[in-house]
Every structure is written in structure tokens, then in C-alpha cells.
Amino acid sequence: MRSNKKNLARNTKRDRLFIFFMLAPGILLVALFCYYPFLSGIPYAFKRYSLLNLSRTKWIGLKNFETLFTEKEFLQTIPNTIKWVFISLILQFTIGFMLALFLKNKFRGRGIYQGVIFFPWAVSGFLIGILWRWIYNAAYGPLNALLIALGLVNPANPIGFLSNLDTAFPSAIATNVWYGIAFFTITIQAALQGVPTELYEASEVDGAGKVYQFFKITVPYIRPVLILSTLLRSIWIFNFADLIYSLTRGGPGGTTEIMTSYMLNLIIFQSNIGKASAVGLIIIVLLLIWSTVYLKLSRFEEEGDF
């Protein structure tokens, strides 16, 4: 890795062509289908643009942003989103990591178990939302029925998971964690399998215990994977609006509304593309800041990995 810097001046012409051709297809496709539409859509953020009356479209500069930052409903989504991302992420990561460690060594039925763990990813987000909506339902949902059968809940007073102002957000997070564990389990497990066993054997000779091995060998070795997967996952959690939409519609009383689901509402219920695009821009700026800070803090660059 130290040799990277030395190679800077030494890419041959052949190498440069090689680099170009290996990168070109991906970059072209992404530029065409991701960046071009996005950049075309940015101007809307500065316009009054509603699908309800297209003829009244006009340039209004920063007005959309002004409206958003003085709107109670939008401002409420900021703390909601922060809680949503961080709590879900930390829980998913910890549990996923733990499961990955358990699954590191081969045992009978491990393959089946991995298939089972991955169930939540096998269907679309909307289905997870409506399924859990049913499960959490206090009147005819299985979760309450189970709790009543176990004697933990009074039948006349079932727990309104999604209808109680205090339990709705934790319930949504629980569903999100249920969903996201698999990502970390599979990713970390794959990374763990790449750790050369010689490293462990060498350290055992030196008398290292399991905990030492874990923190001084395992974690540093898979660090790039950990950092990247956490970053990506945090961005995806941030953008997981369809779960909120199908699960709670942002309710009750707006307690589970996050920034991306708020943007979804603007599009679906208000047809206000201008304002929605403004929210979109705010989202991108926030995520950019987050990514930069996160990568700097985790000293990703110092490893020479960037």
C-alpha cells in the first residue's frame, strides 16, 4: 500500500488505455441514467412547479427553501431522520456483526440459516411495510394476539404499536432493524472469510487471546469493508421512504415522518415538484456533508485506501 504513491508517475500509456476502457462503460451508463436526469431536474428546486397547474410555473429562486425551513412539519423531520438513521444503523450493525461472527465457522445447516436470515431482503419494501402494518395492528394483528396468548397483554387493551405517539417510532425502527441485519451479516461474513488464517495462527503462537485477536487482527483487516458498508447502509436507510410510507404513512401525528418520506408526500399528495426538488437538494447536501465527515473521521484516507 505504501507503494501507491510511488506509482503515481509510472502509469504507462498501455496502462492508461487499460484504465480507460475498464472504467468507461460504468461511468458512461451512470452519467447517462443517473446524473443527466438528476441535473435536468435540479432547476425545478428553484421554481414554482406544481403538476396541478403547470401554466403557473415560474422562477422563484430560494423561495422553496425559505418555505421549507419555516415549516414546522419539515423541521420536525430533521430530528426524526437523525434518530431514524443512527439508531437503526447502530442496531443493525451490532446485531449483524454478532451474527456474522457466529456464522464464521462452518456448521451443519449454515447455508440454510443464511438463506433464512436473508428473507427480509427477498421481497420489496412496500410489502414489508404493509406486512408489518398488519403484524403490529392492535385489533387483528398477530403480534398482539401472541402477546395476549402469552398473558403479557390484556385483551381489552392491546398495544397500539403504530397508533401510540410513543411507540410508533420505535416500532418503525424495529422493523427497519429486522430488515437491515441481513445486509451486515452477509457482507461482514464475506469479509471475515477473507482474513488469512495465518494471521491468527501467528498471533496464537505469540499467546494472543480471542479478544486480542478480534480487535488487533480481525477488525483492522476488514476495516475498509466495515467503513464502506456502514456508510452505504446509512445512506440507504436515509432514503428508505417507502418503508415509512407503507408502514405508517408518516403518522401518527407526523411522528414517523422522515425527510425522504416528506419529499414523497410532496410528490404524491401535493404534486409540488418544485418544493420536492428543493427537499431533494437539501437531502443531497446533507448526505454529502455526512459522507465527507464520516470518511474523514474514520481515517479512511490515512490507510491509503482512498
Binding site: 443517473c34 443527466y36 438528476f38 435536468s40 435540479i42 425522504t260 420536492a276 431533494g280 437531502i283 443531497i284
Partner: peptide, 11 residues
């Protein structure tokens, strides 16, 4: 990964 997909939908 950060680009919300709705912004570019119409274009």
C-alpha cells in the same frame, strides 16, 4: 447513492 430518484424521474 445520495441522489433521490424522484428528482430525475420526469427527465
Amino acid at each position: 447513492q445520495m441522489l433521490p430518484s424522484f428528482i430525475g424521474l420526469a427527465p
